[in-house]
Design a protein around this nucleic acid. Structure first.
Lengths: 213, 213
DNA sequence: TTCTTACCAGAACACTCGTTCCGAATAGAA
DNA sequence: TTCTATTCGGAACGAGTGTTCTGGTAAGAA
């Protein structure tokens, strides 16, 4: 495959930047100015080359109809995930209601990419309080992103409420015969075995975010 | 808040559909046709209303310069952070070059919000390999976001190279007299004391992201 | 040399597109 | 009723914009 000239690379980079910035593609003359190209025909010439090489797609005769084909064009949309409370060992975690997502408190959200939520709905976040979740590799102040659910498949990390001890914990869920094994993310720590009846799954952990600033 | 007329709702829906479909916004006349509106001035009128109500943003005098602000929209800008390699105990971490940010490999990035990078420049990411970083509360496969720097202030978490043992580690940095104390994020684990000469700071940890799907 | 190919400069053309103006219909309040 | 605000139709203006035409430059092959 033919390699791109510096001018073509500059145009591609400018396209990415412009779209990321303004959410709509530039016109030919925007590119001309942005890349310091002397003529619109040169821009057109190079755009045609880029189109032939498969880097962009253009709708003829339509202004600003340039589409990037290498996946970098669309600014990845972020999703506001409401932080509805804290999670700590000794207290039950807050339960999200339908209202949680229809009426988001924008002062208490964490914006994440769809990549982090896996495209799931009913996603909420909790702030970790205290050091008790260290076996799940989350620290005081970290944020845990959860999907609201009451069931889990083997190997998924869940927020679970243990009725007997009155504690909430973040562990990986496994069925072991008729018992449940809760495995800490930290492999050096021991799992918990318990009866399914003793367990109340309150959410599935999608992502953890630790701010170490 | 004033509710939207059916025409305005139709326009919003058409905008979403069009952008999702073509990756660039429609022109006024595209909207006119798509929503079966009789005149461009009516489209303009309703777009102005939508802008006043905060649903869209428009750049005047520029064709197709309509940006959706809600739904998929009021999104804070995300930044592509290049993942330039892996981090493991026994090997030095890759060093970012100037080229790292000027020529981003879009197949190997993680998109994060500015909130997570703290607005810093020269931010890069590493994927954690193995379980050796567990005392920093990051697991195999997690992503660590770093700022390229060679110095650190007390209490900051750094990626440091220990010359004597030939190992890299993620710890909080403290000056303790003329010695350096490296404190694991996991408070139950013991700190390392070492000579400043033995230490090479390779980056400052901004955020950790753990995917527990 | 001559021919070919790739790339560029400038200008012009025709269509696209945002904007605006004038007027009308409609609805609600006074 | 009359007044006012809102919404709409139709048309036109002018700037924005993609395209094309003509010609030029540079490099390489025949």
């Amino acid at each position: 495959m033919k390699s791109l000239s510096t001018k073509q690379q500059a145009i591609l980079e400018f396209l990415r930047q412009f779209i990321r910035d303004k959410d709509y593609p530039p016109s030919i003359r925007d590119i001309q100015l942005g890349c310091k190209i002397s003529s619109t025909s040169v821009v057109d010439y190079n755009l045609k080359a880029l189109e032939r090489l498969g880097h962009i797609r253009r709708d003829r005769e339509v202004s600003r109809a340039i589409e990037l084909l290498d996946g970098t064009g669309r600014r990845p949309s972020t999703i506001p995930v409401p932080i509805i409370g804290t999670i700590a060992a000794g207290e039950p975690i807050p339960v999200p209601s339908a209202d949680t997502w229809s009426n988001i408190d924008y002062d208490n959200v964490v914006e994440v990419t769809e990549e982090m939520t896996g495209g799931k709905a009913q996603v909420y976040a909790l702030r970790v309080k205290g050091d008790s979740m260290i076996d799940a590799l989350v620290n005081d102040g970290d944020i845990v992103i959860l999907e609201a659910t009451h069931s889990a498949a083997d190997g998924e990390m869940v927020a679970a409420w243990l009725k007997d001890t009155g504690e909430v914990t973040l562990k990986r869920f496994y069925m072991d015969g008729d018992r449940v094994r809760l495995q800490p993310a930290n492999a050096t720590m021991k799992p918990i075995f318990t009866d399914p009846e003793n367990l109340e799954i309150q959410g599935r952990v999608l992502t953890t975010i630790g701010n170490r600033g």
